[in-house]
Design a protein around this nucleic acid. Sequence first.
DNA 1: ATTAGCACTCGACTAGTTGGAGTGCTAACA
DNA 2: TGTTAGCACTCCAACTAGTCGAGTGCTAAT
Lengths: 346, 346
Amino acid sequence: MELDARKLKILQAIIDEYVMSASPVGSRSVSKNPEFNLSSATIRNEMADLEEMGFLEQPHTSAGRIPSDKAYRLYVDTIMNRAQISRDEIRKIRTHFSSKISEVDEILKQTAVAISSVTNYTAMVLAPELDCDTLRHIQLVPLVPGKALLVIVTGTGFAKDAVIHVPVGVRTEELEQISRFLTKRLYGRRMDMVAEMIASELEPEMADRREFLSNIADGIERKITPNRKSVELAGAGNMLHYPEYADLQKARNFLSAVEGRDALYNMLKRASSLEFTVTIGSENEQDELKDCSVVTATYRMGDQSMPMGTLGVIGPTRMNYGKVISVLEYMRRSLGEILSNYIEED
Amino acid sequence: MELDARKLKILQAIIDEYVMSASPVGSRSVSKNPEFNLSSATIRNEMADLEEMGFLEQPHTSAGRIPSDKAYRLYVDTIMNRAQISRDEIRKIRTHFSSKISEVDEILKQTAVAISSVTNYTAMVLAPELDCDTLRHIQLVPLVPGKALLVIVTGTGFAKDAVIHVPVGVRTEELEQISRFLTKRLYGRRMDMVAEMIASELEPEMADRREFLSNIADGIERKITPNRKSVELAGAGNMLHYPEYADLQKARNFLSAVEGRDALYNMLKRASSLEFTVTIGSENEQDELKDCSVVTATYRMGDQSMPMGTLGVIGPTRMNYGKVISVLEYMRRSLGEILSNYIEED
DNA sequence: ATTAGCACTCGACTAGTTGGAGTGCTAACA
DNA sequence: TGTTAGCACTCCAACTAGTCGAGTGCTAAT
């Protein structure tokens, strides 16, 4: 059997309607669509074919039909036309960044909130990954006897700090000197190489400060390793608006899958090598997300080539893919600009 | 009518049972309690009295009775016996802090997760408020031309950083010198006085660097002002386990009230002047929380006298108050210790 | 190839029925 | 006077038909 142009149009009409209504689509309602001049019986035959081909499913004999995951796949890959993001939506997004924001974390948080409020789905944002960034500055700040604060500034301007142990014998004044030394020697290196370099090159050179250097290397290592904590989440409650989650059990499963950020972190991390990904229903690894779709997009700083982090939206498989993709497209650019302005301009 | 000892015991029995079962308690099931040797008819009379006094309510004529907010108030104020926290629960809490945690934020996050997982309610943690803390160290780190990173370390060892603008004419080497100057002059001052002092004392003294100093003061001001972002939340989805939230509409309202952290921030902030607070049902300001109870406790660092922040639990009014209070009691101490170890020991 | 028509299916909704848990009240009892 | 057995009453929850309508597949005519 072949998927001719008419079948495709019918499939698209069914998907569009199902995305709106969330209830199975019958042949009659499709035949009413002025785009087709066909009776319901004809549509019925075509729908039977589409079902046979695996694009449609029947919840039970006398209901309409709903699109299968395979149909959504086809839809996003070939038929879908990307929705244009509206002025109103842009305005709505802007409001989330109007008040003066003083931290990168807060920017990411607001990004998630903005995405979820415009799409009405659940949004997530993976914080910038620092391992591909370079080192710009290291500063040791005395804290209490035996402790210091290690401040690392990266090439793209992110600052991280960690409390580290200062071995007895290291004088407070020495901290400044070591800071200068490390900055000078490590400037411009990739962050994921820095800890290694300290161990292999600098420790032999400053054998009497070996322990301290190794603490510093540990601190850096800890800081550039991303973790589940660096996933911002917003609008998880939005899912309760959709009839898919009228079942409490499902809603609960979804919320608990999403609250422990680990799963999200893994998904976003895996998606970070591609500009855009769309994962539909059963394509998801996580069981709890088998009836969700996940759309992700990477963002980068200004016009750099390396992606820094990932944005994502989780919604029911019956989501408005066109809209979600265009919102993510808009946000990935905005976020890139916002982040570079944050660092570079005033 | 008087609330004699027997009435009190009956009320307690009703509350205990209702907390367990979530369904209205009938006279018969109370009379079965071996503690009373009374027929259901007698209990019935007593229950009628208790209803008249406003401690019980009847959802409808032929149902049992449920405790009113007033009853819970009485319960927590006088009858309740604090549950002992079990070995298992302590072990469960410990697991959340076993892996090496490298940031204060992460500690707070894990605290919220631990509380919610032990109580099965929703937990929140308000980050330490820095305005009552003192200043220990200020460091300016060069970032890009025109920008610097301002790092502030407080007396209790918290570090905060902010990106600030460096006016043209301020040389990079000068940053170190200004850092020393500011640290020397402001050491030991209360954080909420620092910005003011810069404006009133230091700016006149260094008139040629007035603009820069004022940027620094702004940065400090921004950082010590707490906001909704500093509330960690965990286990919001737990609420869906309770029949109170079987109604989707209610669940949705709850989740959206709690997702925008503002309401929580206000509650915790207001509660921060008291060691413990218990707010029952209609006593809550927020409409969405009128059928929840909120229990809060302040935590402090080590054995200091000033409270730093607040922990809280939100659950249905029918919550296990005894358990929640004892968990919070345990956590406030633990958190205090964890935070001081984080800063002081290794 | 398309369509009108028809018999059939099946969930959603409605109304009626029943059973049980609970109540209040009264009268008897210790 | 406090307690209790007994009874009539209430009302929800659960079950049972019964009906309606939206939808289907199939067939025969166009």
